[in-house]
Nucleic acid binder design. Sequence first.
DNA 1: GTAGGGTTAG
Length: 460
Amino acid sequence: MSLNFQLLIATEESHFLLRLFKCSILTLDSIKDCIAQSFADIFCGKSNIDFFDQRHDGVLPCALQDIIETVGDQCQQQNKDCFSQTKDCNDKRDLRAVFNVLDTMLKDSLERLKTMREGISWAHIGLCGRTFEGSYTQHVAIIRALCLEGKLGASLWLRKKMIWNVVIPDVLTHNYFLNGLCKTGELKKANWLVSEMLYCGPSPNCATYNTLMKGYCLINNVDRALNVFSAMVNSGVMPNRVSCNILVHALCKKGLLEDARKLLKEILDENCDEGRSNLITSTILMDGHFKNGDTMQALAFWDEMLQRGTQMDVISYNVIIYGFCSSRDVTVSYRYLSEMFKSGLIPDVFTYNTLISALCKEGRIDGACYIYSVMSRMGVAPDHISYKMLIQGLCIQGHVIEANEFHVSMLENLIVPEPLIWNSIIDGYGRSGDIQNALSIRDQMVAFGVLPNVDTNFKT
DNA sequence: GTAGGGTTAG
């Protein structure tokens, strides 16, 4: 039997000519398979995105791809569902049934095509010389969503299109751009964006400067962060408590505690009217002193907060618990843990991991396992850090069977272990002479898609 | 609830 199929699909403004078949087809099964594959390629695959990539010669491929993906995710999922449902059609001999399947697919695909066209033409603003479509609110919403997803190329491209159409996104939207750029370490672009804001608007606000300062701190460039701070003050924007905290934290991380205190004093004396009663600033300074090995000074901050009647939170307790754990005084940490419960605060995964870490380092693996059981009873889910410390701690002490129980629990909780964890178990079995299990775990590692590395071996 | 601040391993 020879069939020539040509389907013409009409949309509101344009026609898509889809050549599905121009070949000899022998059975209805192959008709179904071919049609399903063709539709899957056209509507579920990347063919639409490739089309634009080729036409515009890579000028905006990533930007467009991101926009299309963002706009089209939902309808793509609907279409996939349609195909999965058609799999159950087994009436191979019934020509009518095959065409019913075709009808369903075509109807659904036309709907999808319509949605996709709307999405693409929306994303295509300005590219084909069209007028500026869509409302300001819509554009701003999609820009913010793209920024939060880290699709900055696409969002900056939309910003450019908006500006071409003399519509300037507001300062909040610009802060979203800036935040995205800073989080991905693109400080040059971030700096450029702030210059653009100063030059053409909207005027940067306190959050704009704070975001840029934080960006520089993230790449460990505190000097530039301090320059941004000066620029903010010089341009007449008042720093707030967040500005203080960003800089104080960055200076503490560098061990410049005295500089941090001086800066804080200057800022607070000049600008802030909140006094010194800020939990976050005190927590940062307390943490800085603990990490500098100055327990006395750290405790002075804690006591000062108590005297002021500051309501502590989970993070401030985590910092003091970590402080005593790192000075090898887990007993004192337990005291603060108990105080935490008494004051109605619920310890989180940070609290428990801090204790597990300290106990493992001291070789008190039973205590670490006990903390694990407490966190489980309290409904706090262990994360990859909890498992990593317990598994490594148990393997070091030769308890590979118990370590593997945690490993299994990790997999059951859908946490894929990193190579180091697999290697610890493999090595643990090797050291205990259990070659069969060592090899079995290595096979499992590969099956989970984790590539063995140079440390994936074992000594017997 | 449109942006921006503090804690765990290595």
